[in-house]
C-alpha cells in the first residue's frame, strides 16, 4: 500500500470546500425534516381518514424507497414539469423530505408519551385546541424527542454523499473529482472516510451531553 502525503495536502483545500457544502446540506436538510416531520405528525392526528390515510400512505412510501432514486426523480422529473432548482436545492429538499418521514415517527412517539393528565388538564382549563397544542403538548413532546431527532441528523450526515449522484460537490463529490484528475484514489477517499467517522463520533458525543442536560 502506497500512501502519498503530498496528495493529502493537495486535496485539503477541496476537502474544506466539500465539508462546507456537506454541512450546508446537513443544516438545511435537518431544518426541513424537523418542520415537515412535525407537520406530518400533526396531520396524522386529524380525526379523519381522508387526511390520515393519504398522509400515512405517502410517508410510508417515501420511507421505504431509496433516497437515491428519489433524488433522481426530483432531479430529472421536476425540470420536465417546468420547475428548475439548482442541484443543491433539489438535494436538500429530497433529503429533508426523506428524513421527515422518519422524524414524524419520532414526534408521534413524543406526543403519545405526554401523560393523559396533561390533555385532561387542558380540557378542564377550557383551553382552545390551538393553545393546548402550542402551550401544553408540544413543549413537552419536543423536549422528549430531541435526542432521537439528533440521531437522525447523524444518519442524515451519512446520507449526504448521495447528493454526489446529482452533481453536488460535497465531500465525496470533491474527492471523486480530485481522484479522477490526479489518479490518486486512496488518499482523498480515506481522508473523507475518516472525516465522516470523526464528525459523526463528535456529533454523537455532543448528543449524549445534550441528552444528559435535557433529562436532568
Amino acid at each position: 500500500m502506497k500512501w502519498d502525503w503530498s496528495a493529502v495536502s493537495e486535496f485539503m483545500p477541496y476537502f474544506w470546500d466539500g465539508l462546507l457544502v456537506t454541512l450546508q446540506i446537513l443544516v438545511l436538510g435537518s431544518l426541513i425534516s424537523f418542520v415537515l416531520g412535525l407537520v406530518w405528525a400533526l396531520l396524522m392526528r386529524v380525526p379523519s381518514r381522508w387526511v390520515t390515510w393519504p398522509v400515512g400512505g405517502v410517508t410510508e412510501f417515501i420511507r421505504n424507497t431509496p433516497l437515491l432514486v428519489q433524488l433522481f426523480f426530483l432531479f430529472y422529473v421536476l425540470p420536465e414539469w417546468g420547475v428548475t432548482f439548482s442541484a443543491l436545492t433539489t438535494g436538500v429538499v429530497a433529503i429533508g423530505l426523506h428524513y421527515s418521514t422518519y422524524t414524524m415517527q419520532v414526534y408521534r412517539a413524543g406526543i403519545e408519551a405526554v401523560p393523559v393528565g396533561q390533555w385532561e388538564a387542558a380540557t378542564a382549563l377550557n383551553l382552545p385546541l390551538r393553545r393546548t397544542w402550542t402551550a401544553v403538548i408540544l413543549p413537552q413532546a419536543v423536549r422528549r424527542v430531541v435526542p432521537a431527532l439528533g440521531n437522525y441528523v447523524i444518519s442524515m450526515l451519512k446520507d449526504t454523499p448521495l447528493l454526489m449522484a446529482i452533481t453536488v460537490l460535497e465531500m465525496l463529490g470533491e474527492a471523486r473529482l480530485f481522484s479522477q484528475q490526479h489518479f490518486q484514489f486512496t488518499e482523498p477517499l480515506t481522508v473523507i472516510g475518516l472525516a465522516f467517522i470523526v464528525i459523526s463520533y463528535l456529533a454523537s458525543l455532543a448528543l449524549r451531553a445534550l441528552e444528559r442536560r435535557l433529562v436532568h
Partner: peptide, 21 residues
Amino acid sequence: VFRGTSALVMIFWVFFVLPPA
C-alpha cells in the same frame, strides 16, 4: 468505525482503494 462512515463512502473505498492497496 463502520457505523461512523457513510455506506457510499465505504462502497467507493472498496471499489477504488482496495484494488491498488
